[in-house]
Design a binder for these strands. Structure first.
Lengths: 115, 115
DNA sequence: TTATAATATAAGTATATGCTTATATACGCA
DNA sequence: TGCGTATATAAGCATATACTTATATTATAA
């Protein structure tokens, strides 16, 4: 990937959002595929409002995109964000969260959210 | 650089520390050379206690090393820290802070801290 | 049209954070 | 020894953060 220079202030804002275990995991999850709120709730074993509030922060900062599909709202990584290169690099260096999604799938908990 | 996998919890802790403009600048400064507290104070235009408190956080987490040299205490980047690869990547993607140090030097404010 | 499911928002609360001012500590030098 | 400089620490305070519980919103389905 080409080297991009990101303004320090903006970088700090993004890093602050990454500096939370819950949000970092959420980003690790949407790196691989779109997820809906109930999936985050299941994977992270946290309350739905708590997850929603973390998602709102990520969305307000523009780090994730949301897309309503019927009853569900799917979140995905916004690869167009100015600080995406930082996020990409960070996610490259932490354990893959994909397996948590496949575990969900095997438990039959992934399907409930498919459109 | 070889790819290293950093535990999520530890990564989050480091990212939290990076997620502050002051600390991110400090790390950007020590990336290039050792600095003492008075230099951070000068460059960042913040109070000495405030700078000291940020440095303590970075030191407690092991992200920077300190070395006393006479009256001064010099801080440097700890490249042996488990999360250093993340820090390295982040610093690669923000503007270089080196010029702030050369500006200090030109103003004759750098010498006062040399041992 | 009502009930249910998925999600968001609001309000409350405990703790964390980042400053401030005041003071302590450590070193060098006269 | 005593003073000045560099730095650390302590205490106080305002604001931010991350939960909680309760309620609102939106869409589907009976």
């Amino acid at each position: 990937m080409e080297k991009t220079i990101i303004e320090l202030e903006q970088a700090a804002q993004t890093l602050k959002l990454l500096g939370d275990k819950t949000r970092l995991t959420i980003l690790g999850l949407v790196k691989d595929s779109e997820c809906c709120v109930c999936e985050f709730v299941e994977v992270l074993q946290m309350s739905q409002p708590s997850i929603s509030q973390h998602l709102r922060k990520l969305r307000d900062a523009g780090l994730v995109k949301e897309q309503r599909r019927g009853q569900w709202i799917f979140y995905s990584l916004n690869r167009d964000h100015a600080t995406y290169p930082i996020i990409h690099q960070v996610l490259e260096q932490i354990p893959d969260q994909k397996e948590k999604l496949t575990a969900l799938e095997e438990a039959g908990l992934r399907i409930q959210c498919d459109s």
